[in-house]
């Protein structure tokens, strides 16, 4: 598995949001709406994840004629694995002094 990116709160939020529909291609504005992250924060995160091989991208032709094509993104296999790890880490809660996974 590639090197783990720096796990900031924003990175975790992005991964969790992308994990909701891991096979769906989404454009940047849609991801921004889902995470609440603005373009200034989102693009550097997308760039880092793409550099590390966790994010795939492609050009998608528009549904309506006359509209420009858009760059869309989704997690790679490694990205899905990482997002699941992050989701598990986030779900850990203390129970009587011990850590246990919260049942889904």
């Amino acid at each position: 598995m590639p090197r783990r990116p720096n796990m900031s709160k924003q990175t975790r939020l992005l991964l969790e949001t992308m994990l909701e529909e891991p096979l769906t291609w989404r454009h940047g504005y849609e991801i921004s709406k889902g995470t609440g992250l603005k373009a200034g924060t989102l693009y550097p995160l997308l760039m880092r994840l793409a550099d590390l091989g966790y994010l795939a991208s492609k050009w998608k032709q528009p549904d309506q004629p006359g509209r420009p094509p858009r760059h869309v993104y989704r997690l790679t296999g490694n990205g899905i694995e990482l997002a699941r790890e992050v989701a598990q880490e986030n779900a850990k809660v203390p129970t009587g002094g011990k850590y246990a996974l919260v049942p889904s």
């Binding site: 504005y29 373009a39 858009r70």
Partner: peptide
């Protein structure tokens, strides 16, 4: 292309500022 695809002008402006 993302800026061009955003229909609302003010939202496009905010997105462009974020790109910068």
């Amino acid at each position: 292309q993302e800026v061009d695809s955003i229909e609302d002008d003010l939202a496009a402006l905010r997105w462009a500022a974020g790109c910068l």
